[in-house]
Each structure stands twice: as C-alpha cells, then as structure tokens.
Computed example of a mutant assay.
Amino acid sequence: MLTIDDFSVDYLGERTTHAVKNVSLTLGRGEVLGLAGESGCGKSTLAYGVTRLLKPPALITSGSATFHSREGYSVDLASLGGADLRAFRWDKISMVFQGAMNSLNPVISVQAQLEDIFTTHRPEMKWKERRQVAGDLLERVGVDRSRLKSFPHELSGGMRQRVMIAMAMALDPQVMIMDEPTTALDVVVQREILDEITRLRSELGFAVIFITHDLPLLLEISDRIAVMKGGEIVELGDAYELYTNPQHPYTKRLLASFPSLTGERGDFIRTGVADARLGVEDAVTAVAHSEGADR
C-alpha cells in the first residue's frame, strides 16, 4: 500500500536537526506495521512527512513516499498539492492524531465535526445521509449514536479516542496512520481501543501504521515492527521474531525495560521466563529487586 524510500527530514535553525535519516519502509495490504522508539526519535515526524503535514522549519531533504492504490495505480505523494492533496488526505490515507482532546474542536459537537468530513469530501451527500452515516460510524467504534449531540468535553478519554478513529474511517481509507492513539488512557480502555482497531482492520481491510513507544503493545497487534532510534530504523522484522530473537542492542534494551507481573524484569508477556538474550538481570537479582520494592 505504501513505499517509503530513503526518506529524510531536517528541522532548520541555527543548528540543523536531522530528525529522520534515510528511512525506507514498505506497508503491505491489510498489514499492521508497528513503529516503535523512544520519545523524540522521529516517529511522528516521519508520519507527518509522509502525509505532507510538516510545516517550516521542517524540510523534507530526500526520498519519496509512494501510495499504491487497491485500484491499481500509484501516486508519488510529493507530486500532490493544493486541491489534489486535500482530496487525497482522509480519502486514501487518514490519520489518528496523538491527543484526541487537542484534535477535536471543543466548541463544536461531535455530529458537526463528523459531518464536516462529508461536506468537504462528499459534497453530493444529502444532510440526512450525512447524519445517518455519522451515527453509523459512532456505533461501528462502540459509541452510541446519541453521542452525536455531545461536545468533546462531555466524553471520556476513551470515547474521544473512538470518535477520532471514527473520523479517520469515515471515507473508507486504505491506509490509517495512528500516532500513539492509546496514550494517556488507562490499560482497560487501551485494550478496548486495540480490540476495536483489530476488529475494524479485519472487517474493512485497511492497512495500519501504528506509532508508539510501547513495544509490548506493538508485539500484541503488529504483523511487523520497525524500531527507530535517533531518526533511523535500526531493526525491522516480524513481530514474533523480533520478540524472540532481537538483533540490535537498542531493541534488546527496549524489551528489557518493561516490568513483568512476575517481578522478573524483561518478561512482560507470554511465558514469564527470563530470556538471557535480552540482557536482563538473572532471577536472583530480579527477586532481590522485587523484595526490595516490597519493603
């Protein structure tokens, strides 16, 4: 669905910052591609660059991003501008931005914000059809259609995030980019959101680029994972292979940085058995740390 080739982004200033450095990635049809890395490593900058949402002083210095439509044609995103770019966004590639409350207009109802998508991109739709489809979208993501009249501040964090996902799905895009869609949500709501994303992906067949610093979360939902550090992709591979046989030292440190319910560091999912390849402390040291924390 998407080919990113040798893509680089700089932030210009007194001192130029090389935020994204020669990144190459591919996204398959119906695939969930995880993009993991610490804060500030360039994940969101890459997503904004691909969708042409960057503003000065950001500058794309090299590379290309090509969209391969399911209808059989390809589009170089750099060639789009003006009305063509506006028509392309949301219709072919949509984005769920980090922080739903910052993305939703606080003084406009959910209904008005959903219907605005159709007014802009589907002007031929009648108002009754727009209202019906807006309600259907909410119900598809698990929100009652009565919430159409609500304002963003009247919704919980999880409901606001679901509204953002509904907006991103409105025009049946072929690719959805999700920039930390579960940040600041509690773990129960996170699980609900992830289940919704997985279900909708299966039903509608869109591909997903899922951006987060939470590597264990990506291991649960991704087909492949790209690990990013300092603006570069340092490791890319099948999610299970990356978990069981990480190659790059940074990936090993990421895996070892998450605690386990068993108290042994690095063993956050599945077996609860320490894996020496991750460079974590041995069981005795881990138990000692756990006992110290209990005291």
Rank of each mutant, 00 (worst) to 15 (best):
L2E: 00
I4C: 01
D5Q: 15
D6A: 11
F7S: 04
D10Y: 09
L12A: 15
G13W: 06
T16F: 04
K21H: 08
N22I: 05
S24R: 04
G30E: 07
G40S: 06
C41N: 05
Y48H: 12
V50F: 03
T51M: 11
P56C: 12
I60H: 02
G63V: 07
G63Y: 01
A65Y: 00
E71R: 12
G72D: 08
S74R: 03
L77P: 01
L80D: 11
L80N: 08
A83H: 13
A83K: 14
L85P: 02
D91A: 14
L104G: 04
N105W: 10
Q111S: 14
L114P: 03
L114K: 03
D116R: 06
T119N: 13
P123H: 07
K126H: 09
R130D: 09
R131F: 06
Q132R: 14
A134I: 02
L138P: 02
E139S: 10
R140C: 06
V141N: 01
G142F: 08
V143T: 13
D144H: 12
S146I: 14
P152M: 07
E154N: 12
L155V: 07
G157I: 06
R160G: 07
M169N: 10
P173I: 05
R199H: 15
S202K: 13
L204T: 09
F206G: 08
F206D: 09
I211D: 00
H213T: 01
L218C: 04
E220N: 06
I221A: 00
S222I: 03
S222E: 04
I225P: 00
A226P: 05
A226T: 08
V227M: 01
V227C: 01
K229G: 00
V234T: 13
H248F: 05
K252D: 10
L254N: 02
S260A: 14
L261Q: 12
G263L: 05
F268E: 03
T271G: 11
V273W: 06
A274P: 09
L278T: 11
V280G: 07
A283E: 13
R295L: 14
